[in-house]
Design a binder for these strands. Structure first.
Length: 579
RNA sequence: CGGGGCGUGGCUCAGCCUGGUUAGAGCGCCUGGUUCGGGACCAGGAGGUCGGUGGUUCAAAUCCACUCGCCCCGACCA
């Protein structure tokens, strides 16, 4: 294509509203323009790139026998009410009414629609397994869209759904997806990690996320370089740092100590001149049980540790919970939040974090304002249910080996998830099994965010000059730049090379704009074309220069060989990376 | 939803505090010419209801109120 005729509105300066690298660059490079908060126009370059991503995904999904559908983004509220997600999703679900006042919504994912198709048509185990997918626009009424294309209200997702007779079948479908996802992200040229993810309250048994490390991300994952352990912070377990000071020896009894004004862990630790690791942190939370009644609970952690909400939900077997109100705390404990402890508490269930196991003679609140208790020993002075519900902290080590862990910021590009029977049960998806009995179908759901692949690649490989996309997802594979466009011989050679590249099936961009070379080099770097062929002075000697965008390394190649040279490079980059 | 910031030609921003002619700059854009290896130069030119509404005032981009939009922090995030 001839650049002079394309709409690639590059910007010299960073747009004021952009903060993260991918947002700034996609705007500057003319890939996207904003329409509203969390809504972006994908212009020519973005669309080309997204189409290439789409094709890679489609090839790999087809390769595992998945069948492509295309479902409505506009859904009747009814099926969402059936599955229960109409309420669960809350304000994140876009809701609207049609002209007759019928409630509708815009799909965030398509479990309901897929299940509604399946339950009408799948009747026998003989029809299983099935994997159905689509590449479609999703809507989420995000409370706070941000970071350019990373967190938006409308985006494109590849979502697939598997239907199997039993858990063994689901394992196969899940594994097929895991392999396909690795191939997809490898082919897109991304560096990523797969992490164990929190399965949520969906009743799912297993779930993995595909994450790309970048500061623009907002998901935290815990990684161990030595053991390969990797998990979402929401789910990760670790070995805590040892207590900063050994516990006092002996079989001591709790003793009150006056701690006037000391309420927070830091204040109490400073007042009593002990490290925070010697304290027991007492949190009071309130969940709502299935009948809608408040269910207060006590969570005990080491003083310096943080509660992991998701892990606590698993341990306590509850859903969403909130901190108790000050009045509730006073009512239940007879003291304020700064002086709470587990000793003597009998009306509320107590959960004790594993990091407190084996500890002795610690310090907790006394349930009496301005007093704390010394010599409190878990298991002796109070009891409760033990569990791991502490968030992994900086400095923690691998739970098995003690190898160092690191916490990394990432963006989620894909997620594979064993759904189980949630939708089969709520929406009545059953088939007849071998013995003629009706059994529910077990499902999996698997998602990939297309824009996030693009963003992640931009974040991953950008440099001071702009975007640097991997060949397979770059909008163009090579740009041809005759230094002086008015020079007949340069022009003729460029024309010829362009024709050759096109014939070879290379995605070539011909920069025929009548602009100074500097401007065109800058633009080409900015939009991130992986290869550039420059036709200049050396053409008279029969050579062109080929510049690799990522390394800026330059190779002189005879004009006659240039097309083949580029073709070989491009093909190599698009071949499946062998492990 | 709480806290903060911003809204002035296409882009980046100045002017606002301390109200007072025709509202500025750089970049971009248009015309002509000279250029042509890393965001060229000369000459000429177009383009702005200062987000909106209401108020204060002889007079409002500037002060006040309301409102809309966008960005950031937090809450939230299958």
């Amino acid at each position: 294509m001839h650049w002079s005729r394309l709409f690639i509105p590059t910007l010299r300066e960073d747009p004021a509203e952009a903060e993260v690298v991918s947002h700034k660059l996609l705007l500057r490079a003319g890939y996207i323009r904003q329409l509203g908060a969390g809504l972006y126009n994908y212009l020519f370059l973005a669309q080309r790139s997204l189409l290439k991503i789409t094709n890679i995904i489609r090839e790999e999904m087809d390769a595992i026998g998945a069948q492509e559908f295309y479902l409505p983004g506009l859904n009747p509220a009814e099926i969402w009410q059936e599955s229960g997600r109409y309420d669960v999703m809350g304000d994140n679900l876009f809701r609207l009414k049609d002209r007759f006042g019928r409630p509708m919504c815009l799909g965030m994912t398509h479990e309901e629609v897929m299940t509604s198709i399946a339950r009408g048509e799948l009747r026998s185990y003989k029809q299983l397994p099935q994997i159905w997918y689509q590449i479609q626009t999703k809507f989420r009424d995000e409370p706070r869209p941000k970071s350019g294309l990373l967190r938006v209200r409308q985006f494109i997702m590849k979502d697939s759904y598997s239907f199997d007779l039993g858990p063994e079948g689901l394992d196969v479908s899940y594994e097929k997806h895991r392999v396909a996802y690795c191939r997809i992200f490898d082919r897109c040229g991304l560096e990523y990690v797969t992490v164990e993810a929190h399965s949520g309250a969906m009743g799912g048994s297993q779930s993995q996320e595909f994450m790309v490390r970048t500061n623009a991300g907002e998901d935290y994952v815990v990684i161990c370089r030595q053991t390969g352990y990797a998990a979402n912070l929401e789910k990760a377990s670790s070995r805590p740092t040892p207590p900063a000071q050994p516990d006092p020896e002996g079989d001591l009894s709790p003793a009150e100590v006056h701690t006037p004004g000391a309420k927070t862990i830091e204040e109490v630790a400073a007042f009593l001149k002990v490290p925070a690791t010697s304290l027991i942190k007492t949190l009071v939370v309130v969940a709502t049980d299935s009948e809608g009644k408040d269910r207060p609970m006590v969570a005990l952690l080491r003083g310096d540790h943080q509660l992991s909400e998701t892990k606590f939900q698993s341990v306590a077997g509850c859903g969403e919970f909130r901190p108790a109100h000050p009045l509730e705390i006073r009512d239940w404990f007879g003291a304020d939040a700064g002086s709470l402890g587990p000793v003597g508490v009998s009306k509320l269930p107590i959960f004790i974090d594993e990091a407190l196991r084996g500890r002795r003679n610690m310090i907790s609140g006394a349930n009496k304002d301005d007093y704390h208790l010394l010599n409190v020993t878990p298991g002796e002075d109070f009891t409760g249910a033990w569990g791991d519900f502490r968030q992994v902290a900086e400095g923690d080590t691998d739970i098995e080996t003690g190898a160092p862990l690191e916490v990394a910021k990432t963006v989620e590009i894909g997620h594979i998830f064993k759904l189980g029977y949630k939708y089969s049960h709520s929406m009545g998806l059953n088939v007849l099994s071998h013995d003629g009995s009706e059994v529910p179908v077990i499902m999996g759901s698997y998602g990939i965010g297309l824009e996030r692949i693009l963003c992640a690649a931009v974040e991953l490989f950008a440099d001071k000059d702009g975007i640097c996309l991997p060949v397979p997802i770059a909008p163009f594979e090579v740009v041809i730049t005759p230094v002086k466009i008015s020079d007949e011989s340069l022009r003729a050679a460029a024309d010829h090379l362009y024709a050759e590249l096109r014939k070879a099936g290379v995605d070539a961009l011909y920069d025929d704009r009548d602009l100074s070379p500097g401007v065109r080099f800058k633009d080409a770097d900015l939009i991130g074309v992986p290869w550039r062929v420059v036709l200049g002075k050396k053409l008279s000697a029969g050579f062109v220069e080929i510049v690799e965008r990522r390394t800026k390394s330059t190779t002189e190649v005879p004009v006659a060989e240039a097309a083949a040279w580029i073709k070989a490079k491009v093909d190599a980059a698009k071949a499946y990376p062998s492990a």
